[in-house]
Amino acid sequence: MEGKIETQTMDAMPEGKEGSSVKIKVLFFARARDLTGLSEMPMEVSSGSSAHDCLNDLVAKFPSLEEIRGCLVLALNEEYTTESAIVGDKDELAIIPPISGG
């Protein structure tokens, strides 16, 4: 875990037309933070995108995230969510892999 964790912008949908995209904030925890080097990141996806779509975009941008894809808790606006949930504008999507250290 590095001391400096930066925030970065990512446009998953470069040709976003007015009203057809939503801007969300992705929060990374634990191993997800190590793998991306980020603690959070704004992200733009087309409206109607699911958490699953967001994860696909994230894995495309950070292929190493594939490692923990099968073992994480997703939370949308601090509440448990499944991958099928639709993300809305200004939503916060948290990616929480388990920590096992002690």
């Binding site: 191993r31 190590d34 490692e67 073992c71 892999p97 388990p98 096992s100």
Partner: peptide, 19 residues
């Protein structure tokens, strides 16, 4: 919460990663 265990590469230890 975690039906599938994390891959071994994702299981870091304090002895390796620090705390």
């Amino acid at each position: 919460l975690f039906p599938t265990p994390p891959p071994t590469t994702a299981c870091q230890r304090c002895a390796d990663s620090g705390v």
